[in-house]
């Protein structure tokens, strides 16, 4: 995972509630054995019509919203299927942070595990950003993970909070598995105690 500190780019309002991971990354893009080629699949049925032609009315296809870095999203974004392909696709498309009011929980974990920032804001701050992003070119934002602020084009800075552990991991591009493997001995000792206490839980017994 590449380290994350600060990123400046344009924000796109995509405020529909409960945008699920089936819509973010439709089924036909889940058949790979690697992570490649998912930028094309992102919001596929919204971006393209049935013959593969771009749908002009979808926000990401509008000239002022191309090359977006941030999506300002509605409540419960990322609900439904656990498919991490949704997060991979957002990153491959160029999205570095999502600004919402709350995220579905598996999706949120997937974001943190890949360095896509899921920023949850109180409704009033979220609404301010959404309003500005609806008025390009005023949709330029800077998301800074060090100071945990979003700077808007009117120069105001809004604070957000990212969980400390994930923030540290993201700032340093840390490998979560390597971090846990430091506790290998503790895990093995736990297994001994656990299977002693509940021997039927030991696999293969």
């Amino acid at each position: 995972m590449r380290p994350y500190t600060t990123c400046t780019g344009t924000g796109v309002p995509l405020l529909q509630a409960n945008l699920d991971t089936d819509v973010i990354m439709p089924k036909q893009f889940l058949k790979g054995i690697d992570r490649q080629g998912l930028a094309r699949g992102l919001f596929y049925d919204l971006r393209y019509d049935a013959s593969g032609v771009e749908q002009a009315d979808f926000v990401l296809n509008q000239p002022e919203y191309r090359n977006a870095s941030f999506l300002v999203v509605g409540p419960n974004f990322g609900c439904g299927s656990s498919r991490e392909h949704a997060v991979w696709g957002l990153l491959q498309y160029g999205i570095r942070a999502l600004i919402g009011t709350g995220f579905a929980s598996i999706f949120r974990d997937n974001c943190f595990n890949n360095g896509l920032l899921p920023i949850a804001l109180p409704a009033d701050l979220h609404a301010r950003i959404a309003t500005l992003c609806a008025r390009p070119p005023r949709n330029l934002l800077t998301v800074d993970l060090v100071s945990q602020t979003v700077t808007l084009s009117d120069h105001s800075r809004l604070p957000f909070r990212i969980d400390d552990m994930y923030r540290e991991n993201l700032l340093h591009g840390r490998d979560a598995i390597a971090a846990t493997l430091r506790y290998s001995a503790e895990i093995a000792a736990f297994e001994d105690r656990h299977w002693n206490r509940s021997p039927w839980l030991k696999p293969g017994t």
């Binding site: 991490e84 997060v87 598996i106 997937n110 595990n113 979560a176 598995i177 846990t180 506790y183 895990i187």
Partner: peptide, 14 residues
């Protein structure tokens, strides 16, 4: 869990 955590569980059982 997502695929990153599948990898985490495979490697650590946690």
């Amino acid at each position: 869990i997502g695929t990153s955590d599948v990898e985490h569980v495979l490697a650590t059982q946690t």
